[in-house]
Amino acid sequence: MERKSWQIPVTIVLIFVGILLTLQFQSQTRVLTDLSTQKTEHLITMVRNLSDKRTSLMEELATLENTLQELKVSGATDANIIENLNADLKRLSIVNGEKEVSGPGLTVTFSEYDPILYTDLVLLINELWAAGAEAIAINETRVNFNTVIFYGEVNNSMYITANHIPLSFPITIKAIGNPNTLDKGLTLPGGIIDNLALFQAFPEIEQQEELVLPAVEKKVPFYNARDVEKN
């Protein structure tokens, strides 16, 4: 085959282009999730959140280890099993919102003059969980996994709904937890309250010594989900 004089330089340059292209692609995809590209303040927030999570996990582990120890030491007699099952049930009933609960916390109240969307309430509740809320209710609806917050129409008026029931103003969100931490979680600069203010919504935030939240009314049964068989 006759070799043209331009073939070698073109080949070299093309190889070079290929290398550059791969490098370029790599540096593009890397930027997003890498911690080294995060700001110091964000890294500090992550450290704090993780420390809180670790503390909470350690406490959970200690409780569980205690239970397991009791079951093992007593040789798991019927009486002991019944006692532990009842203790589990009591704790899970709080998790699942089976009972009315009380405690200190925070209330966030929207008046009818606050222009809010259902998504604002979804975001607000999410922020309250993130700030360590232990239980939340909107007006008289206790929030659980299945709680549907949406909008609906009644007599040609739009309403925000909780579990398809229209919420009437004032809409009050009650959260049990550390009142100070919950407050700060919402009012930090650039946080959700700042964001709502941009849209002219100015909810009233109040720390409370004693709140009472109702039990969950509505549950979605498991029609489709089955237990995974244990090996």
Binding site: L57, E60, R91, E134, I176, N178
Partner: peptide
Amino acid sequence: GSFQFKYI
């Protein structure tokens, strides 16, 4: 994860 209730 955990379920911890300190305030309830």
